[in-house]
């Protein structure tokens, strides 16, 4: 169980391990993008962790990185094709960042640091934990950025509801910088500081 829960807080990919920050900065402009990206990353992480773990005795040590990249890229391409076919608006919003999941360090990082030494069950738990942790981090950042930067919360459109919740006051005069790239860096920086602060307090309490 620890293999699952560690990814959510204690080893959160975004705030603690600080991997996969590029897509995090780029797609956290809207909540719906964060959800889509999160689902994509969970699927790819799950697939690559399972296969790396299954093939750990087959893949020669010398070419392990190319092998991992082939496995990861295959799953990413599958996600990309399915999104283009069945979720075109999401695919349009995420654009090139779906393909860029290939180079999301968190996926190669988990393959190299965890899956290649673990059995399939642990690799699955690790992938789910890390994926959920990544998604939650992305959700938190995009929620802050979208609420402050555009005054909206964009979810999926269902029936008459167009999927956009507009917040009175903020949607007329949003803090534009939050929707731009500097806003992403600011939000991640403050959240990282918050994580460090709570971490430091907890360890102080433990020693006291």
């Amino acid at each position: 169980m620890g293999n699952f829960t560690k990814g959510i807080l204690k080893e959160n990919p975004i705030f603690i391990i600080m991997l996969g920050l590029c897509p995090t900065l780029a797609v956290s402009t809207q909540v719906v993008n964060a959800i889509g990206m999160g689902v994509g990353v969970i699927f790819v992480l799950l697939g690559s962790n399972i296969f790396v773990s299954l093939l750990k005795n087959f893949i020669p040590e010398k070419v392990r990185i190319p092998s991992y990249i082939v496995i990861i890229a295959s799953f990413v391409t599958m996600v990309d094709l399915f999104m283009q076919g069945y979720a075109p608006s999401l695919s349009k919003n995420l654009g090139v960042f779906v393909q860029l999941i290939v180079v999301n360090c968190i996926i190669l990082g988990r393959a190299e640091a965890f899956a290649k030494k673990s059995n399939v069950k642990d690799a699955v738990l690790d992938a789910l934990g890390m994926g959920v942790g990544f998604t939650l981090g992305l959700l938190l950042i995009s929620l802050i950025r979208e609420v402050l930067g555009s005054g909206t919360i964009t979810l999926f459109a269902i029936g008459n509801f167009d999927g956009v919740i507009r917040l009175p006051g903020l949607s007329e005069s949003p803090v534009r910088v939050m929707a731009l790239a500097p806003g992403a860096l600011l939000v991640i920086g403050y959240l990282k500081a918050l994580f460090n602060w709570t971490e430091a307090r907890r360890s102080k309490e433990a020693t006291a």
Binding site: F58, I59, V63, P66, S67, V70, I71
Partner: peptide, 14 residues
Amino acid sequence: VNVGGKLALICAVA
């Protein structure tokens, strides 16, 4: 041959 063959096999399956 061994290393290259295994990598080629992975690529082919993918």
